[in-house]
Simulated assay, not measured.
Amino acid sequence: MTDAPDDTPLDDMHKDWLEAELEETLDETFEMEFSEPMLSQEIRKIYRKAHPESLDRRTYFTNLLRLQAEMIKMQDWVEATGARICILFEGRDSAGKGGVIKRITQRLNPRVARVVALPAPNRREQSQWYFQRYVPHLPAGGEIVLFDRSWYNRAGVERVMGFASEDQVEMFFRDVPEFERMLVRNGIILLKYWFSITDAEQQLRFQVRIHDPMKQWKLSPMDLQSRVRWEQYTKAKEDMFARTNIPEAPWYIVEGNDKKRERLNCMEHILSRIPYEPVEHEKVELPERKYNPDYERKVLPDDLYVPKIY
């Protein structure tokens, strides 16, 4: 930051800096929301026709920024009180879990709010107690942990794809209610969300990913199998709800055909389930910079600098 010209009022400079910061914030938001698929005009028309009543941008951005500001207040409360929050995000492939998680964490402190997305278990982990690989990632005091898929893999993909035996699945269903009751009894705020989309919407989103070079990396052989086994996943989901929807840790279903409404509705609900309160902060004052008249800044060699291409 350069020194202020002598003839520039400090208040005007603060205003300019504030406006610049706001523009940067909005640019960051627009960049994240720039999700218009890189598709042919024909497929783009199909995509837009399938979402004729999508939430308008003004309403969406206004509420997104409001909710993100509330998330920061909730984060402050978590830090101040040492609360522990654990949120599970489950749902079909392409249901929008990742998009919701990104909007929740976009403005939060990554030292407080962290995302856990575990890969497939290795051979050693496969020999452990099933919940063992998840336990180290549970929140400590003053932390928010968001699981992008969780221990419910056993009730979904592992069961449908045959990675777990029926005996292992049955043991999971017997164990998971008590495991979650233990977490809640220990003081963890546990929230479980299932993101729901229709058969036709998943078909459309997979087609978008196939034709969009910016999203092709999201498609895996497992995703393609989820299309083939739609009904098996449906039955597995229904069984999971029936056996794991307990009063201490109920499931909440988020309708996800409209991504913008999905994000806002989920964020609103999370905030409604956490008893956060405003936290008083001490007034921050910027200290005066100390100047050493004998100090001379060294000139660094040009090859240390990144080329200014833009």
Rank of each mutant, 00 (worst) to 15 (best):
S196Y: 05
S94P: 03
E288R: 09
F206H: 05
T25W: 01
I46T: 15
Y47I: 10
R103W: 01
R273I: 00
E158K: 01
F206V: 03
Q232N: 09
H51M: 13
H51C: 09
D6I: 10
E24Q: 07
P177A: 08
I274P: 04
E70T: 08
D212G: 02
F241C: 00
D212Q: 03
W151E: 12
A117D: 05
P221N: 01
V100S: 08
E28N: 15
V228L: 11
H211W: 04
Y295R: 10
T59V: 06
I43T: 13
P9K: 10
T81I: 04
Q225I: 00
L264E: 05
E170C: 03
I144M: 09
R154M: 02
A140D: 10
T244F: 05
G141L: 04
S94E: 02
W217I: 01
Y291G: 10
R209A: 00
D212E: 02
E42A: 10
P37A: 04
H281S: 07
R154Q: 09
A164I: 08
R123A: 15
I197R: 08
V145F: 07
E53N: 14
R114P: 01
E125M: 09
K283H: 09
P5Y: 11
E248S: 01
I197H: 04
Q41M: 07
Y130E: 13
